[in-house]
Design a protein around this nucleic acid. Structure first.
Lengths: 242, 242
DNA sequence: CATTTTAGCATAACATCGTTATGCTAAGAA
DNA sequence: TTCTTAGCATAACGATGTTATGCTAAAATG
């Protein structure tokens, strides 16, 4: 996970160290540009100008623009994991599941451009995910898998593969978020209504009974505001990983 | 639907008409470049070079690169609609629904880069969907809505809003395709397995009983190869819409 | 058929992009 | 204090989307 540093800190003498603050600043500015003005606004020159340095800084710290994007993607995964960690494990695991889905959705909406690169298959500045990156992404699913396991153990879900159930939840939530961000879900059938409907449908489909699902969904709505950040703080300093 | 032509053919005299063949050729080449080499390879110069013309042709015919992308997107919607039209309406509407989902999935995989622009929220060459474009996209859903209606009328689905049910199917299939194209669905839980699982789960969730769903899913698999093109023919001439 | 009109298209320029070669310089090692 | 060397500024390279400029061919008109 920290193997990028090997590119910079060789075993030999180092006459001048990389400024980790510069590195963090660059990622921070890039993330803000991406979030505020979209993919088209992300350029080495704009980043360098805002950081008060030259475009070369991007190359000494990240190798290329893609390297900087990768850094942002990793930070995005970490942020999603932090969001998941904020969701409590209660004795109503189905409600937990619903809150997790909401957390995923909120995180995606708060970092829509980055999310498009992380999960949407969007290549940004020539960057595309490596298998390692995807594995990082899949790893965030373990929280959901554990939750599915607890749902089965509690007798709410039919006995089955919790990994497969977690994928169902992921796929549905991901599909919803993507179409929501694409502007496809509008008034009579908006995103919130769709989310309720499809989640309910899925939970019933995996074995829970209709009445219990309704109760857990209602409970999850109470918990949302406490356990899920309404919006991911954009001013939050990002991890520098080096 | 044909209002683009108004930009070119003014009411006044026309000393020299636009060559509709050139227009079609440009769209065709652009679509092939996009499909074969991805978004990065789509440039006015490459298109013009392959078409044996200058970059100006793109601007006289489409106004900008975005205009050309819009043309491709519209063609993509039309192609999806044609795929849907090939799915039969049988007395097993739930199987019809499963075949429709498979058609959506196949179409997305055969035109992945274009699909990313149509539904994935990816902005290509500065192009982003207008509300009109999205309405065009939503219109393809009517086939699914009608199918959901037939499922309700046949007593397979609980009584409910067919539009909402269609959205459930759309969201799930879209989510699956997106993660599949992103390379996230691998061996133990691959895309095919996920598709079966989530579709079954959803169909049970909207009211069908487990045994009927299994039968319809099996029936749909028999019909796939006949009613869904395995791969959209890339050499197929595109409609010029003018 | 000759003339006029005018829009398609080629050419070339512009600003901007990612990237890289070059050199200066500051910071750590001796 | 001197030497080493890697960070960073500068400037250039090729490629991008777009636009200004003119040539020219095709339609309209007489």
């Amino acid at each position: 996970m920290l193997r990028i540093t090997a590119l910079c800190n060789t075993v030999k003498v180092s006459p001048r160290k990389l400024d980790p603050e510069t590195r963090a600043t660059l990622v921070d500015i890039a993330a803000r540009l991406l979030a505020e003005h979209g993919a088209e606004a992300l350029s080495t020159r704009k980043i360098a100008a805002e950081a008060g340095t030259s475009t070369m800084a991007v190359y000494t710290h990240f190798g290329s623009m893609s390297g900087l994007v990768r850094e942002m993607v990793h930070e995005g995964f970490a942020r999603l994991e932090r969001q998941f960690a904020m969701v409590r494990r209660t004795d109503d695991p189905v409600a937990d599941m619903a809150v997790l889905g909401y957390a995923y959705r909120q995180n995606a909406k708060a970092n829509s451009h980055l999310y498009a690169v992380m999960f949407g298959g969007q290549s940004l500045a020539g960057f595309s995910l490596t298998e390692d990156d995807r594995q990082y992404g899949r790893y965030t699913l373990v929280t959901v898998v554990e939750c599915a396991t607890r749902c089965i153990e509690a007798g709410r879900f039919r006995d089955g593969d919790p990994l497969l159930i977690a994928h169902e939840m992921w796929i549905a939530t991901h599909g919803l978020v993507n179409l929501e961000l694409g502007g496809y879900l509008i008034d009579p059938v908006d995103a919130d209504r769709c989310y309720d409907t499809i989640l309910t449908s899925l939970l019933v489909g995996v074995g829970d009974d209709t009445r219990s699902v309704a109760a857990s969904m209602a409970a999850s709505k109470q918990r949302r505001q406490h356990e899920v950040e309404a919006e991911s703080a954009p001013a939050e300093p990002v991890a520098t990983q080096g």
